[in-house]
Design a protein around this nucleic acid. Structure first.
Lengths: 141, 141
DNA sequence: ATATTAATGCAACTTAGTTGCAACAGTCAA
DNA sequence: TTGACTGTTGCAACTAAGTTGCATTAATAT
């Protein structure tokens, strides 16, 4: 995972401005590390005394997505989309149906085996995937 | 996958009514077999001359979900939810980013290995999962 | 044939996200 | 440090997807 400075330097070099809102949004996403919804992001900004408009938040998310800095996640049990800073390694989520908390998991070996299988049997080239597990966490079982 | 008659008999036995809308919705979902959105379902009904209100469609989907007859799918690249009849065996989807078509895949061996791993390392009991692959189909590559 | 109540349709509403446009504010160069 | 350039923001109004309350309709058992 990248550090704040690195991300800001990259953007700056690209000719983009480091505004108060932009810096704070990236900070919040780096610090929570569990996926936040646009509304959650808005609230976090308010708590930090960096009030922002929801339009700004949505536009900033779009901007950061386009640059591969954040990624969008859609949990099946929710209506809203969530966002998190892209990690070096691809990972997945464990969603507890009891307490609704979300944990990360990294899976060893990943799904490459399946992706090869799919290529062979269907001629379909996999470029990306989503995988989320729903269940009960240790505390809620 | 269940046949129409079986599903209807089951519902009838449960004290639910077999209305024109209900029967048609189940028929459409059985026949398309690829996941349909609520709006798509509405259009299919119109083509069959069984006009239904969108409220009815949403309520029927909820009803069929609660009874384990249909399941809801959320593709990452879309805003809408989609619905399909639950198959005997769990399967996943290949979403072509070119033509937007969706194919089914069944994966051999499934993700049980990962589910056991998650149980061991995190104490998290997996009850369900979603897995979708995004990429390019044979025709679009 | 009729009573019961599940299912429906309508209109009004909510929630999540988007758009156009005028105003504002980082950044660079002088 | 000042200004000019243009990227960024906020507002208000909008769209799309889905939900709700309530009065009406229509499957079904008797």
């Amino acid at each position: 995972m990248k550090a704040l400075g690195e991300i800001l330097a990259e953007l700056s070099k690209g000719g983009f401005r480091i505004t108060r809102a932009r810096r704070s949004i990236i900070e919040v996403l780096l610090n929570t590390h569990l996926p936040l919804s646009a509304e959650g992001l808005l609230e976090s900004l308010e708590r930090r005394r960096v009030p922002a408009n929801k339009t700004t938040v949505y536009r900033e998310i779009t901007f950061l997505k386009e640059r591969g800095i954040v990624q969008e996640i859609q949990f099946l049990h929710e209506r809203v989309k969530r966002y998190e800073v892209v990690f070096g390694s691809h990972h997945h989520h464990l969603i507890c149906m009891g307490c609704k908390r979300v944990e990360d998991v990294e899976l060893e070996g990943e799904l490459e085996k399946y992706e090869r299988e799919i290529m062979k049997s269907k001629g379909f080239k996999v470029l990306n995937h989503t995988l989320e597990f729903m269940g009960l966490c240790e505390g809620c079982r």
